[in-house]
Amino acid sequence: MSAPELQFSPGKYLAPLVDWFNTNLHGVSKTISVVVEFSLRAIESALLALPPLAVIAIVAIGAALLIRVRVAVLAAAMLGYCLISGLWIASMQTIALVSVAVLISVSIAFPLGILASRVKRVDAALRPVLDVMQTVPPWVYLIPAVMIFSLGRVPAIIATVVYGIPPMLRLTTLALKQVPKEMVELGNAMGATKRSILFKIEIPLATPTLLVGLNQCILLSLAMVVLAGLVGAGGLGAEVTRGLTRMEMGLGLRAGLAIVAVALLLDRVSRGLLDRNSRPVAGR
């Protein structure tokens, strides 16, 4: 009664396109898959090779030295929970997924962000695109990824990378734009090359905002990785999905709490690095 009789399905028209893409550009997607799988496996094996307690110890000590004891204790507690809830492997898988995705996101977003901060036209062109990308719900990114790479971890990474680029890019551009012009002028006046100005003046000054971008990128990537459990990405997302679909509340809750733990861990650690980089604030 409320839908028109005349209907058409763009999906039906586009589906053959996707098939064509899959058959002809198979090489491209295959290469990407291989690279991604390789990096994932590398990190995963690194994380899983050591006994869990060793990993916890390393992370805690690192946090204590680089950030603060409080963060180290938190990190240890969070990882400890992942261990005793029987979800160590899944947690490490999720962390591996997030790490690879964030690494790729940042390596794309960072240079682009620098470019956008320097070239107004690039910035203006990117802005509406980024707006759209950040508004669209994360689910939508999984669809094309799954269409090309089928179910599994690779579409998860691809979708997460794409999802994580906008915040990092935006904040990189903002961070560099906010560097006081006098600093750059100083560099020029001293006869420094553009490159050394970038690395020695602009980036250090922009670091606080950059780290905010990194923090956001990490958390958004985690959200996407967890969601991708629905498409066979494994990790804690898959556990939550299992709990949800099979109504195994215990498992679901355990996995959910593990996700909370990982989120807190990643958030506090990345924020801790941020605080470390900004000037000490009186009365902390």
């Binding site: 399905s9 763009p10 999906g11 039906k12 586009l14 589906a15 996707v18 098939d19 669209v136 719900p137 689910w139 939508v140 999984l142 669809i143 094309p144 799954v146 269409m147 089928s150 179910l151 629905l230 498409v231």
Partner: peptide, 17 residues
């Protein structure tokens, strides 16, 4: 997604966007 129905997922994605 679960049934890997590409056509339906494209349509759905378009509607969502």
């Amino acid at each position: 997604i679960r049934t890997l129905d590409i056509a339906k997922s494209i349509n759905g994605a378009i509607a969502i966007v």
